[in-house]
Simulated scan of single mutants.
Amino acid sequence: LLARINALGRRPAAQEQKTALRVADLEMDLILRRVTRQGQLIDLRPREFSLLEVLMRGEGRVITRTMLLERVWDFHFDPKTSVVETHISRLRAKVDRPFDVPL
């Protein structure tokens, strides 16, 4: 028991998992699965939520179409469809259009 306690003490501290993401005035609560912008609730479908989460986690970095297909749709190949573009368009309509400044 003492050896196990010592071993656990030598391990690096666990990183705290984020439960909320924020980009500008867009907020995402990962536990409640709720997205708000300027205090207004944005109703997203599950796939749109996952897509937005990947984009918000990658803020400031280039995220390719292939990366989105792998992380959101779990495709490890390019099916040559416009599924990513279609979902991005729907997401922009919900996140940007009702507000003055597009993200």
Rank of each mutant, 00 (worst) to 15 (best):
L1P: 02
L2D: 06
A3G: 14
A3K: 15
R4Y: 15
R4C: 12
R4S: 10
R4G: 09
I5Q: 14
A7Y: 10
L8I: 01
L8C: 01
G9E: 10
G9S: 13
R10C: 02
R10M: 05
R10G: 02
R11V: 03
P12S: 05
P12Y: 04
A13V: 14
Q15K: 09
Q15V: 07
Q15D: 08
E16C: 12
E16F: 11
Q17E: 12
Q17L: 11
Q17H: 10
K18N: 04
A20L: 03
A20E: 12
A20C: 08
R22I: 00
V23H: 09
L26M: 08
E27M: 13
E27C: 15
M28V: 12
D29W: 04
L30T: 09
L30Y: 13
R33Q: 15
T36F: 12
T36M: 11
T36Y: 13
R37V: 07
G39N: 08
Q40H: 12
I42M: 07
D43F: 02
R45L: 12
R45H: 13
R47W: 06
L52A: 01
E53G: 01
E53T: 08
V54S: 02
V54P: 05
L55T: 03
M56I: 12
M56P: 14
R57N: 00
G58V: 02
G58C: 04
R61Y: 09
V62R: 02
V62C: 03
R65A: 07
R65C: 06
T66C: 00
M67I: 10
L68C: 00
L69W: 07
L69Y: 08
R71G: 05
R71Y: 12
V72I: 06
W73N: 08
F75P: 03
H76N: 08
F77D: 07
D78Y: 06
K80D: 11
K80A: 09
T81R: 06
S82W: 00
S82Y: 00
S82P: 00
V83Y: 03
H87Q: 13
S89P: 03
R90V: 05
R90T: 10
R90E: 14
R92K: 15
A93K: 13
R97M: 05
R97K: 08
F99R: 02
V101K: 15
